[in-house]
Simulated scan of single mutants.
Amino acid sequence: MNKTIQLQDLGLQDYKTTWEYQEEIFKKVVDLKIQNRREETTIATPNYFLFVEHPHVYTLGKSGDLENLLLSEKQLEAKGATFYKINRGGDITYHGPGQIVGYPILDLENFFTDIHKYLRFLEESIILTLQEYGLECGRSDGETGVWLGVGTPFARKICAMGVRASRWVTMHGFALNVNVDLGYFDNIIPCGIRGKAVTSLNVELGVEKVDEAEVKAKIIKHLTQLFEAEFVTK
């Protein structure tokens, strides 16, 4: 079992470019697993974690409803945003500047073979990170992600999640709003959930800008503990 995770920070990068890069890594890991089984070898499968920030883009999961995008093609263009229908779970979400996006490409057979536990660990890493900033947050029953004000009329989502897994290899991941222009969420029904707001860490803390590098470091610290892993920078 290889519990080393190669950490890469891609900076600001186009969504499609990053998606193709994820697919390339994902295929490499899956192909190695197939080779191991076919040839009865035990070559260790690698694990990756990508941090990235995207230009304005809306993405729709494979089970999502296109009606949850409230903009026409021309309106998207006017806002400088792009749109992609992709192969993760979940409905529609927004990615943009000021948002920390994390894409774990892990062979879960190196850790545990439980997708439910995997999603809960991703959520927990964000919950523990936000608690370090003094925020009370948690999960909302039946709604993946991390929320504030759960059980009140002021419930608001701060982190969206959507993953894909095949042969226990994961891709896609989470998007945590840190310094986000929340106006872009007005153009969708986020995650297909009506009547609930979206928020950002800087808004909750009442500051103009939160140190994103600090937030990333805290997330990695908690992922390291939860997955009992070692992150190495490549």
Rank of each mutant, 00 (worst) to 15 (best):
V52K: 05
G192R: 02
F174S: 14
K209M: 12
A44E: 14
P97T: 04
Q13W: 06
R164I: 01
E132A: 12
E39S: 05
S63F: 03
T82K: 12
I220G: 00
A78P: 08
V215W: 00
E24G: 05
E53K: 01
H116Y: 12
E24F: 10
E77M: 15
Y48S: 02
A160T: 09
G192T: 01
P104E: 04
W19D: 12
P104N: 07
N47P: 05
H222W: 10
G183N: 13
K85P: 06
L50F: 14
Q75R: 09
P104V: 03
F51W: 09
E123G: 11
E67F: 04
R194W: 09
I115F: 07
R156Y: 02
L12E: 14
M1P: 14
T144W: 00
I92V: 13
E77R: 11
V30H: 10
R139I: 15
K3H: 14
I193A: 01
T4K: 07
R88A: 02
A155L: 07
G89K: 01
H222R: 15
V30Q: 13
E77P: 06
V57K: 08
P104G: 07
N47I: 02
Y94V: 11
Q13L: 15
G195N: 11
L12G: 07
K74L: 10
A78H: 11
T17P: 00
D31N: 13
V180I: 14
Q8V: 13
E124L: 10
L176M: 10
A81D: 09
D91L: 04
C137A: 13
I126K: 02
G61T: 00
L60E: 04
G98A: 09
T42D: 14
Q6C: 07
T17L: 06
E53L: 08
F112H: 14
Q131W: 01
N36E: 06
H222P: 06
F231D: 02
T59N: 03
A155F: 05
I34N: 10
I193T: 02
I220M: 09
H172I: 03
H172W: 10
I193E: 02
